[in-house]
Simulated assay, not measured.
Amino acid sequence: MENDQTRATITTATTSSSSKEADHDDCHDLLIASLPKEKGWSSHQLYLYQGFWCPSVLIREEMAVHQHFQARQNDIALATNPKSGTTWLKALAFSILRRQHYTPSQNHPLLTSNPHTLVPFLFQGFLDQDLTSNIAHSPRLFSTHLPYHALPPSIKSCAIGCRIVYLCRNPYDTFISAWHFFTKASDSLEPLSLNDAFDMYIRGVFGYGPFWVHMLGYWKESLERPQKVLFLKYEDLKDNPILHMKRLAEFIGVPFSIEEEKEGLIEEISRLCSINNLRELDVNKTGKFGSHFENKALFRKGEVGDWVNYLTPEMVERLDKVIQEKMDGFGLTFKTSL
Rank of each mutant, 00 (worst) to 15 (best):
M1D: 10
E2T: 13
E2R: 09
N3E: 15
N3L: 15
D4Q: 10
T11I: 02
A13V: 09
T15F: 05
T15Q: 12
T15A: 12
D23F: 11
H24A: 14
D26M: 05
I32P: 02
I32L: 13
K37Y: 10
E38M: 06
S42Y: 00
H44E: 14
Q45R: 06
Q50A: 08
F52V: 10
P55V: 09
S56K: 14
S56L: 05
R60H: 05
E61Y: 10
M63F: 00
A64F: 06
F69P: 01
F69S: 01
Q70P: 02
R72P: 00
N81I: 10
N81W: 11
P82E: 04
K83A: 06
T86I: 02
T87A: 00
K90W: 04
S95D: 12
P104E: 01
S105R: 09
S105E: 13
Q106V: 13
L110P: 04
L111C: 12
N114T: 08
F126I: 03
T132C: 02
N134K: 13
I135F: 08
A136P: 03
F142Q: 06
S143V: 04
Y148G: 03
H149C: 07
L151E: 00
S154F: 01
G161V: 00
G161Q: 01
C162T: 01
I164P: 02
L167H: 01
N170V: 06
N170H: 08
N170G: 07
Y172Q: 10
Y172K: 15
D173H: 02
F175I: 04
S177W: 02
F182L: 12
T183M: 10
T183N: 13
K184C: 07
D187R: 07
L192K: 10
D196A: 15
M200S: 14
Y201V: 07
R203C: 11
R203K: 15
Y208G: 05
F211Y: 15
S222E: 02
S222C: 05
L223D: 05
P226W: 04
Q227C: 01
F231S: 00
K233D: 03
K233A: 00
E235P: 05
L237K: 03
P241G: 02
A249S: 12
A249I: 05
I252R: 00
I252H: 00
F256H: 05
S257P: 05
I258P: 07
E259M: 04
E259A: 11
E263V: 03
L265T: 04
L265C: 05
L265N: 03
E267I: 06
E268K: 15
R271Q: 13
N276S: 14
N277A: 04
L278T: 02
R279V: 03
R279N: 12
N284K: 08
F289V: 14
G290R: 12
F293C: 08
L298R: 06
F299W: 09
F299Y: 13
R300H: 14
V308C: 10
L311C: 11
T312H: 01
T312E: 03
E314P: 03
L319S: 10
D320V: 06
D320A: 06
V322E: 09
I323C: 08
K326P: 01
M327W: 00
D328L: 07
G331E: 13
G331N: 14
L332C: 12
T333W: 05
F334T: 08
K335R: 14
